[in-house]
Design a binder for these strands. Structure first.
Lengths: 180, 180
DNA sequence: TACACTTTTCAGCAATTTCTGAAAATTAAA
DNA sequence: TTTAATTTTCAGAAATTGCTGAAAAGTGTA
């Protein structure tokens, strides 16, 4: 399993960025390799290409599975497991949104709700609850959005994103419409 | 500087989540404390409240400054520096979007563009470039969106988010309109 | 069932990140 | 200026995270 120079530079970059994401270097590299290679890969090929141990690949694949980012294939006459990324880049994006929400937002929303259920016993807690309420409301809306995106087809998601700078105008139009 | 139990549990949670974000535990705790406390705080108070060294607070504040997440105050007759978070939670959200884009998206977009400028010398690179192109297009749209959000007032941002599940209908309406 | 092949687990080592105390630098009042 | 208060820097210690090889577990074929 050899990697072209072009692929190598992309893999390295994903490795460096991996840590800025919730992933780590190796996971970033592994996913870059899988995404950029047309044919599904087995664990030994990944281990080869990235010069990391077979067991590390196994753990990485486990993590990628838990993120729902890879698909499993079987090749007739070969007992090894082969992995690929979804063809549709929008599907990958959608998965990332869902999984990051699960990990980054949901637990916090729960903590906020618990804090809001308590009775403030002094003015410091009153202020605290007020701020928690604000953060809660914002996060809840983001969650609703992400659920919405989750159920959107790639086509619709694409349309929405292409709206880009048009979005402001749409809001204006809506405001106007409602006021009339 | 004492922290109420309610504040303490929120601070701990932010600490744990801090690592899932690009921050780290201490940074998460520091920002929770600053956000949840009404009066601006000085470094010694933060050090006290969170039981971390003064120098660690100094480094944390430096980081929070670089993220544009805190405001500096001076109290007459006091030489210490006091820090607070913006009152408007939407402003904080906007800042986070901008800063995360800078750190998580922009460098990758540059790498993608460089890869697309190269001439593919074999079919593996052809496939690679095709996938990079897809990812590039998607990321560019996300970037445009985030620029849009960056320039939106808190009110407008709020309206947009409240749109929530209405967004699908708006897209449908727009599609229909364009086709007629 | 026995077997060869493949994947997973995990204890311990390695690398990285985070934190601290001491010292240096900065700041502003006297 | 000098001095005292405050903030910042940074080398090394501590803690955390990541990686490996060896062994265990799992899987399908004969």
């Amino acid at each position: 399993m050899k990697v072209t120079p072009m692929q190598q530079s992309l893999i390295s970059h994903f490795g460096e960025m991996g840590s800025r994401w919730g992933l780590n270097r190796t996971l970033g590299q592994m996913y870059a390799l899988i995404v950029l290679t047309e044919a599904p890969l087995n664990a030994d090929q990944i281990s080869d290409a990235l010069l990391i141990s077979r067991s590390n690949v196994s753990m990485g694949l486990k993590e990628l599975k838990s993120w729902n980012l890879i698909r499993l294939h079987h090749i007739p006459g070969d007992r090894k497991e082969y992995f690929s990324a979804p063809q549709d880049i929008w599907e990958i994006a959608r998965t990332l949104i869902i999984e990051r929400r699960k990990r980054e937002l949901d637990p916090t929303l729960t903590t906020f709700r618990n804090a809001l259920l308590e009775k403030p016993s002094n003015s410091a807690d009153e202020y605290t609850q007020q701020r928690v309420q604000d953060m809660h409301d914002l996060m809840e809306m983001v969650t609703i959005w992400s659920t919405e995106l989750q159920n959107m087809s790639s086509e619709k998601l694409s349309t929405l994103l292409k709206l880009g700078s048009g979005i402001s105008k749409i809001i204006d139009a809506k405001e106007k419409f409602l006021k009339k």
